[in-house]
Simulated assay, not measured.
Amino acid sequence: MRKDIAKGADEIVAMQRALAPVEDGDLKRSISWTFGEAPPTRATGAPRIKRSTFVPGDNDIRATIYAGDDVAFYARWVEFGTAPHSLAKGADRTRNKLQDVGGWHPGARPRPFFFTPYRTLKKRVVSRISRGIRKAARKVARS
């Protein structure tokens, strides 16, 4: 079962990397997977996009696919986009004098690279794992 989970996670990660927008390659390099929980980011504790899949509960056979790290901390912003916002330090979302000091960012459109491949390939991967489980159960039953 671990082999089928690993094969499925590799397949999803490969598609995510192919769809990730590339400026300097940091975002693409931050996309990976592991059995169990995703490793913590280093110093900044930058938020990650992550999705655990395949086998709920047991950490030993659960794959977690993740994107974003201390360098590619902007993974969520790329996936979901951003609303227009001020660049001034301490400004809120409403237009005020403080916001005009730092400039105004028009926001960014979403460029999904993470959840689209996950949703597209999940059914295939789960089917592969189920077939592997049935095959192993038949093998054990025969012996």
Rank of each mutant, 00 (worst) to 15 (best):
V22L: 06
E23A: 04
S127K: 13
W33Y: 15
K97F: 11
A46D: 03
R29I: 05
K28I: 05
K122W: 07
F113N: 01
P110C: 04
K89L: 00
R128A: 15
P112F: 01
L121G: 01
S130Y: 13
P112G: 03
Y118G: 04
P39K: 12
G25N: 09
R119N: 14
R111F: 06
S32C: 00
D69N: 14
A18F: 11
M1S: 02
S32G: 09
A6S: 10
G107H: 09
A43F: 11
M1I: 11
E23S: 03
G107E: 07
Y118Q: 02
S130N: 13
T41V: 15
G102S: 06
L87M: 09
A20G: 04
D70L: 05
A9G: 03
A108G: 03
V55T: 14
P110I: 11
G107S: 06
P56M: 08
M15L: 12
A18W: 07
G68E: 05
E23G: 05
V126G: 02
A67Y: 15
T116P: 00
R111S: 05
R95L: 12
H85G: 01
T34E: 15
P112R: 13
E79Q: 08
R42V: 06
N96F: 05
T34C: 11
P47K: 13
A137F: 15
A38P: 10
P39A: 08
W104N: 00
A9T: 09
Y74R: 09
M1R: 07
H85A: 00
L19E: 05
Y74T: 06
E23H: 09
